[in-house]
Each structure stands twice: as structure tokens, then as C-alpha cells.
Write a protein that binds this DNA or RNA. Sequence first.
DNA 1: GAAAGTCACGAAAACGTTTTCGTGTTAAAA
DNA 2: TTTTAACACGAAAACGTTTTCGTGACTTTC
Lengths: 348, 348
Amino acid sequence: MKRKITLKQIARELDVSISTVSKALRNSAEISDDTKQKVQAFAKLYNYKPNNIALSLKNRRTNTIGIIIPEIVHHFFSKVISGVELVANKRGYNVIVGLSNESFSKEVINMEMLANGSIDGFVLSMSKETLKLQDYHHFNETMTQGMPIVMFDRVVSDVNCDKVIVDDFNGAKKAVRKLIDNGCQSIALITTEDYVSVGKLRTQGYLEALEEHGIIPKAELILKIDESLDYEAHMEALESEIEHLFKSNPNLDGVFAVNEIYALLAMKIARRLGHDVPNDVQVIGFTDGVLSKHATPSLTTVSQHAQQMGEKAAELLIDKLEKEFNSADEVFQTVVITTDLVERESTK
Amino acid sequence: MKRKITLKQIARELDVSISTVSKALRNSAEISDDTKQKVQAFAKLYNYKPNNIALSLKNRRTNTIGIIIPEIVHHFFSKVISGVELVANKRGYNVIVGLSNESFSKEVINMEMLANGSIDGFVLSMSKETLKLQDYHHFNETMTQGMPIVMFDRVVSDVNCDKVIVDDFNGAKKAVRKLIDNGCQSIALITTEDYVSVGKLRTQGYLEALEEHGIIPKAELILKIDESLDYEAHMEALESEIEHLFKSNPNLDGVFAVNEIYALLAMKIARRLGHDVPNDVQVIGFTDGVLSKHATPSLTTVSQHAQQMGEKAAELLIDKLEKEFNSADEVFQTVVITTDLVERESTK
DNA sequence: GAAAGTCACGAAAACGTTTTCGTGTTAAAA
DNA sequence: TTTTAACACGAAAACGTTTTCGTGACTTTC
């Protein structure tokens, strides 16, 4: 149970000053070769490593970035973390995670905890509750204290910061176009309430693709799910809504869903009702996760490139951290990650 | 861009000493009510929050726990994190994550980075490479430096620390028993190489369940997958192996797989070959993740209670951190989380 | 009216670094 | 021999806290 060795202990042991030890280890020209050798050998022997906390205090930077997400048990978000971690590590940073659990207050508390010196900047995606309340004061306060924020996926124009988003609008459009090109005439949309920015954009993409082809959108083909509750809780309600969708629209031949779960559920129910996928009904989802790939039939999806989003977000943040901030010409950028349509078995 | 306010600045502004400010904020009896009021009001106005790094340095504890896992884009591990985060936050700790990516050297490097003061203790699951190399020096060194470790899931008896494991042996046994009870006569096992401790235990459970019922295990029914590569890379090879398994054992009527992916693949291939699940072939997997739940037919699995594992691991760690360590009677415990069989549509 | 006690506050050390500046010793230059 | 320069090292401050100890000014007690 011997504590980690410190400069002070090395100094005492070798009968030199702390400064000398520090300089010797950093190969300063001020120190004689003899002393350097001696100190470095001793340090190596005792496996000396500088204390990160002391360094952080001294340098006023922690080389750690904080990431706040609504939920970690979620393919998209964990893949983003994976991307952030990748470039963070490559550039000498650690990653500390906070989960908001889709709750506004947890988001605020978590950010406050981390903002008090623990990290240098944030990569985050807002909770649904925050989006609903439209209360962004904690973001702005954090930023005025000189701590940069990069938002991804769920963003909002009221907050002025770097952003990484997916091209939700065009992704959805591409998907619906595909369905139309494949011969679908009656295409349903399963989406979220509009306060979720990404849901709204995907809905717009759906509408525009229809319009483009002269198809008039019908209200009864659009199902908006209230996601205040989490998936698990209202799975059955969800199922029956989708079932109703199919039953009241017997000639439904295409479904575009704004996430994997909805799409899979649609496939399941379609088949239960005797429709074949993809011959009777074609289905496309959003978010290219494990579910899409391993489903039977596997699901055609719009790929969000989550990992790439994480990497880009981390790069934006670290770039900002390492730029000598001539705070005057602060300029924020929004990076758009283009989506790809990954075609699998659920479409023809 | 105004920096966060410090005690020193408050002191200067109010023309008192730093000590007075500190005491006033902590409501010390040494300070007059007048001064307290004044200081507290000022601190509130400027939203003073003590700097975590300074506190960490002073207290020699960071109130942060490090978690090292092989892979985050994985339902099981992200759920464990979720559990760790839950109790960590509840008890006033932050969580910092490191990914080993199943690599020994990344595991070592990541642990060294965090061990230099950034965290108070580890929750971790070893990489496959570490298990293969059987090199555990980094764990032991970390612990002799007074930094506790709690291992979960992938553990090894050569390392003396607290552990949280799943009852792999009995979980597997229960599953195979279930298949036998359901009338299966010829049950295949799809597992990993033996160096993965959990794979080995689950294999033993399979064998014992068979033996219990007087069934003699046949080598050609056991498929051991070399997982050195990751899933994605050798998916096709895997598929053809499983296909061969079915073809060379035409009367196969049950499959037990040590994870979800293998189980799903088995179902897919079985159906492709014209077998009905569950009427011709029944399938059970391990790891109760999203895939099992959303598959069609949904998969019967052995649930590992990942979140509960994370919670328990965090509790063990924090308990140890907060106990005044009478280092003499250091005692390590191994908590076994019991598994449940979650019955779904892939069994009768 | 002196001794003792209370009150309210400040000085300083400590946590582990890095870095600036000062200083004593020796060697080179004048 | 004296001045200067180079060399090798140490003292101290700083990062932002908390906490121990000391101290001056009053107030109480006999």
C-alpha cells in the first residue's frame, strides 16, 4: 500500500531540491548530465509519473473533455462516445461521461459538476426535456465562463456554439424517394412529436419527397409518437397504434420510420397481419444500428455515421481548446454529416 | 469570457482574508453572522462554486471512478456503465471511461493515464487479449499503489480483488435444461474459445446439463468460435460454420449460444434451411439485450442483469473507498448475480 | 483593575507540480 | 589579479482550496 512517489520524495532521497528533480526529468539544460542520469534512473526505478491533478491545477487545464448524453444504452449514443473517445485519446485527452437520462435537471446538475474544473469543454446532445422546455441558460452560462461546447445531433439555433448534425432532412428525403422509386404509392410515416428537432426535420424530408412526386400527404398516414415516456414503458400502446395504422390503411405499401425500433415494430406487425416484407410492404428506418443489421429481414436504413459524428465533435472541441483564443473573432461552425442509404432486405 | 470566480477574488473584493471567505461559506462558527451574510450573498451573486481540481489535490481524492471496458458499442457494457453511473452519481462521484478495444496495451496505457491521480478506483472488465496473455501485472501494480479495483464479468482468479460476476455456469445449465425439458434431443452449442472465462463456464454448464439427463455430448455439436477478430470482420465465415453445423446434423433440434449474435445467426440460418423456429429447432441465447427482444421470433435468453452488475460493482468500489482502510484485514468479496431465463418466442 | 476567557479574524502550511529568478562556484577573459 | 561569463542548482511563487494555529480586541470574573 505504498502511495505513488512524488517529486518531493525523490528530492529528499537524492538530496537535491524539488526544482532540480523536476528539471532533470524534463531534460532541462540547466541540469548537469550527472544529475540528470541519477534522477532519471531513480524515477524510472520507482516508476514516477507526474500527478495529473497537480498538473491540472497548475496549468488550469485538465486535458479531459466531458460528454453529456441523454442515454448511453443506445447504439447511436454509444457509438458517438466511441468516436469521441477515439480522437480524444489520440490527442491526449480523457473522456468523462454524464448521463442526463433525458431529464433537464439532471443535465444541469451534471454540467455544473463537471464545469467546476473537472473538464476543459463539453461535447453534448440535449435531453428531450430541455428541448421541450426550451431552457438553454446552462449552456450559455457555461460558455460565458470560457468553457466551449460542441453540440451534436439534437441541436437548437438559440444556442451559439459549434455543432455537428446529420442531414436529417435530406436523409429522410432520400429514403422516401427510394420507396417511391420502388413503386410505393401509399407511404406511412412514423415519427416523434415536433419538439424533437431531428424528428421534425425528418418529417419535413418525408413531406418534401412526396410533394416532389406529386403525392399529396394524408394525415392518416402520419403517426406522431409522444416519446415523453421511454420506449419500454409504452411498447404495447405503440404496437396497437401501428396496428391501427395498417388496418385503417389496407393499401399501405411503404413505411418510413424515424428510428430503428419503430421500423422493426412496423415490420413485425405487418407480417403479423399477413403482409410480406418487402413484397407487400417496404420499410426503411433511420439510425443504422445493430438492430437493423441483425433483423430478419434486415432493415434498410438511413445511416447516421454516429462514430464519425463523435470524432468530428471531438475534433472541433479540441481544436477550439488548443487555439490561442483571440476571443474577438470567435466563429462557430456547424458541420453536417451526410447520410447514406444502406439498402438491405426490407426494400426491393 | 470571465473566468470562474475564486475565493481569492471574493476575499479581495470584500476586503477580508481568504480563510474568512472559506469559513464563511462553510458556515463556520468562527465567523460572525454579519460577515457570513455578506460573503454568502456575494458568493451567490457571482455563482461561486469551489474548484474541483483544487479540492482533489487538497483532499487527495477525486471523487471520480474510472471504468475500463473492452468496447462500449455493446448493449451489455453500456448497460453496465449505466448502472455504475447511477450509483456513482447518487453517491457524489463522477465516472470517467476508458476503452481498451480488447487490446492489452490499450488497457495498460489507459489505466496508467487514469491512475496518476485522475480517479480513486477502477471498475473494469478485462480485454480478451489480456485474458489470452494472462498478464495481470498492471492490475496488481495499481492495487499495491492503494487504488482499489472491482472487476466484473470477465474475471480471473489470479487477481485478488472484489469481483462481480454472473452465474454463467448455472445460467447455461438452466438454459440447456429448458431445451431438454422442451423435448430437444440433439442440442448444439455455439461458444467461444476457452480462454474467455465466461465462455468456458457456459460450456461447462451445457455439458453438465446434458450429463444430468444422461445425454452424451458429441464433439460435432460443439462449435467454438475464435473471437480474436471482431464480429463484423468474420461474419461470413461464422455463417458458413453454422450452416455446416446444421447440414451435418440434420436432426438438430436445439441450439444454445453463448451470446445474442450467435443465437440470432443460428435462427436466421435455420430458417433459411427451411427449419421452423421454434417448432423444428429451439434456440436460446445468453446476454439479454435489445437484439433478443426485437428479433422475430424474439429470442429466449439468459438474462445477465447488466445494469445490476454495474450498480453492484460501483457500490463495492465506493464502499471500499469510503472505509477507513485498516489495511490489515483487507478482505475481497465476489458477488454472484444470478441469471434468469427470459422465455420468448424461440422456445416452445 | 488585573487575570482569564470569548470572539472574529488572518497567516501560513499543505496537496504536487512548473517556472522564474537569484546565487554561489568555477572557468575564461582582460 | 580582477572582472565577466558560464554553469548548476535552490528558493519561492503560483494554481485554489481547507484547516490549524495564533493574535488582537473586547468582555467577563473575582
